[in-house]
């Protein structure tokens, strides 16, 4: 569990990626992921990995941290790869055993999917490693801002996300406290079958929900008391400003994308 969500996965640093506007990072990450799904050239993947490793090293994020986010999905990735390996049938058969056969196309396909997913996680993690959740929220709010013209409640949603980020540590420590308290009332959470374990959740979940609602209620009153009005215009303390670093980054990004396009479709 992410214990400190206020920092999320944020790893403090001083690199260009830490300094540029979250909007730039969100935009480039989305565009990058989009491109990833069109690339089907080995050489391109090599370039991609090179660029990603370069950025990670510039941000001083360790290899261990880099692979941390891959770990949880690795079993699924391997499992689907194996299924694909034996079920995809087009292309030349290069290996066969009893009913199973592996074709060159399936091998290639699996390799590509594997690279795409890994790159996708690497690139999106890079975003969360270099951006505070609160900045991310603010960036998303700014990007979605035009939607408020069609009555989409952008400000309210952004407020909701930031309150959620604010309260997650509080609720986690509350959960820990409730678990301890019920344990000392004799709830045995370590042993027993699934049904028994599910039953153990009731004395934890009910107090947790009640407490969450109580907090929500009190917070709503406190917000109202501090002059908050839903749907009213507000100014913002935090200003996002594009600087020349954003330009440099976008320029670099443009070059990488052009190279990828060239290599993938014209070479």
């Amino acid at each position: 569990m992410i214990k400190d969500i206020t920092l999320g996965q944020y790893s403090a640093g001083n690199s260009i990626l830490h300094k540029i506007d979250p909007r730039t990072k969100i935009f480039t990450t989305v565009v990058y992921i989009f491109f990833l799904f069109f690339i089907d050239n080995f050489f391109c993947y090599a370039i991609n990995f090179f660029v990603i490793f370069f950025l990670y090293s510039r941000c001083k994020i360790s290899l261990k941290m880099m692979f941390n986010n891959i770990k949880p999905i690795l079993p699924i990735l391997i499992f689907t790869s194996i299924i694909n390996l034996f079920t995809l049938r087009d292309g030349k058969i290069i290996f066969s055993f009893l009913f199973f056969s592996i074709t060159d196309r399936s091998l290639l396909f699996i390799f590509m999917i594997f690279c795409r997913i890994v790159l996708l996680i690497f690139s999106s993690s890079l975003l969360t490693y270099t951006t505070l959740p609160i900045d991310l929220t603010y960036g998303i709010e700014k990007i979605l801002k035009p939607l408020s013209k069609i009555k989409f409640p952008v400000d309210e949603i952004s407020m909701m996300i930031s309150i959620a980020i604010r309260f997650i540590p509080t609720l986690i420590s509350e959960t820990e406290k409730i678990i301890l308290a019920q344990k000392s009332r004799g709830v045995d959470m370590e042993s027993g079958n699934i049904i028994k374990k599910v039953k153990c959740m009731i004395p934890i979940l009910i107090p947790l929900f009640i407490s969450a609602f109580r907090r929500a209620d009190e917070l709503a009153i406190a917000m109202e008391s501090r002059c908050y009005r839903v749907g009213q215009k507000r100014t913002r303390y935090k200003q996002l400003k594009f600087c020349y670093l954003d330009l440099i980054f976008l320029f670099g990004f443009g070059i990488v994308v052009s190279v990828l396009v060239l290599v993938n479709w014209f070479l």
């Binding site: 980020i165 604010r166 509080t170 907090r215 009190e218 009153i221 406190a222 008391s225």
Partner: peptide, 14 residues
């Protein structure tokens, strides 16, 4: 202005 009882339940921002 009003300051409430529970310090945890009146702070909005992170």
């Amino acid at each position: 202005g009003m300051v409430f009882q529970n310090p945890d339940n009146q702070i909005v921002a992170t």
